[in-house]
């Protein structure tokens, strides 16, 4: 979503993005002329008249589970977004019984918060597991 019109979205997709992604952008490119939606999400820069690089993960109940907002010159990291979605999906599937420690990826251990784990995380989770 940006403040550009759908006409400009079409030109960008059809003339440039289609050369990067086979078949072009597979999801809807939304138009927010005037930045009203961006303002509602806190990413619209009134002085510049454009939106910052905001990324929101919204769950099946319509609840915002995560967001990240960057100023324009730095791009995002799609793999990190996917990792977070997988983590939120796991937490949701367990009804909140499991939590994902720092650096968690699918297949790595989760933690089960509760009285037995208080003060014992060091026994089951090591800092070098963050980046392996």
């Amino acid at each position: 979503m940006s403040v550009d019109s759908v006409f400009v979205h079409k030109m960008w997709n059809d003339n440039e993005l289609v050369k990067m992604v086979n078949g072009g952008v597979p999801f809807p490119m939304l138009s927010d002329g005037g930045g009203k939606v961006g303002a509602a999400f806190g990413v619209y820069d009134e002085d510049a008249g454009v939106e910052n690089r905001g990324r929101f993960i919204i769950d099946p109940d319509g609840v915002i589970q995560a967001y990240e907002v960057l100023t324009p010159p730095v791009g995002r990291h799609v793999a990190e977004t996917l990792r977070q979605i997988q983590a939120f999906q796991l937490v949701r599937a367990t009804g909140g019984a499991e939590a994902t420690p720092s650096g968690w990826k699918p297949g790595k251990i989760t933690l089960k918060p509760g009285p037995d784990l208080v003060g014992k995380v060091w026994q089951v989770w090591k800092t070098d597991m963050e980046s392996d």
């Binding site: 030109m11 999400f41 324009p72």
Partner: peptide, 16 residues
């Protein structure tokens, strides 16, 4: 899109 996971992305503009 209720019932689905949604990623909503904002960006400063096309061709940026």
């Amino acid at each position: 899109f209720l019932g689905k996971w949604v990623v909503l992305c904002f960006y400063p503009g096309d061709f940026t």
